[in-house]
Amino acid sequence: MFSWCTDPDTLEGLAWLSCYLTTGKHMAFYRSFGTVMVLLLVTAPVALAFGFAGAMAARSHFAPLSWLGKGYTAVVRGVPDIAFFLFFVIALDQGIEYLRHRIKCPDWSEPIRQGNDFVVCPAAKMPLSTAPQWVHETYGFALAVITFAIVFGAFAANVLYGGMRAVPRAQMETAEAYGMSRRQAFWRILVPQMWVYALPGLGNLWMILIKATPLLFLLGVEDIVYWARELGGSKTSAFTYPHPDWRLYYFLALLAFYLLLTRVSEILLDRLMARLTHGQATSGGKSTDKGLAI
């Protein structure tokens, strides 16, 4: 990185540190913070969409659809995310490749399951084995997003379902009185109003999503935890920059990152909430006199 970094063995103190902190590996570490932020920003709307679909299905009057929605939230909420991640990604990947295999290689005669092996025709590989590495990484990232979205979508569905139920019934009766159809009443009356009730729960979920990102490394994405472990572990002189076990410092840096992210999210959510609950008749609604409730 810097001109003086050519021979790290001769360096000491700050010069050594400046070279150490700018190695290619550290650059990958810094980039992984971006990976985590992108994952959060992509996953949140996708999970919300899953949640919305789940909540709509759960309140459907068509029984099988309602069971599907309720089953989805009940099952996925019941399983620890970590256990889900350990087998679901491989299953998802195999499922996609199986479908592609069916479409692309209808004449393929060999069985897909050969003992322990899962073998599809080369053209059905996802991504193709000839694809460059960045395609593989992007695909892995996309699988991670879908997996996260399915898990957090189940929690979001639960929150949104509660939000829809919390909209006062009188509102819907009024809509009926005005001659709106079910569909119209749902989209024009219920959906715009439910957000107020769902926001605290969704905010909480966002905080939990932030704290679930360390599990990314289970999904094969090289995230900040992977690099912190990798960089912090003790390095013998086989490496250019040998050092003892420094995991503590790296993990403290991660701690600072997560606390910062939480603080910023809290401030934004508080502002949004203050705007939405302004003037409501709760002790929080008149929050200028802190501590009055007690």
């Binding site: 990102t213 993990f251 991660l254 701690l255 997560y258 606390l259 939480t262």
Partner: peptide, 9 residues
């Protein structure tokens, strides 16, 4: 501090 950091840290 406890809500703001991942449990594994």
């Amino acid at each position: 501090v406890f809500r703001g950091s991942p449990l594994f840290i």
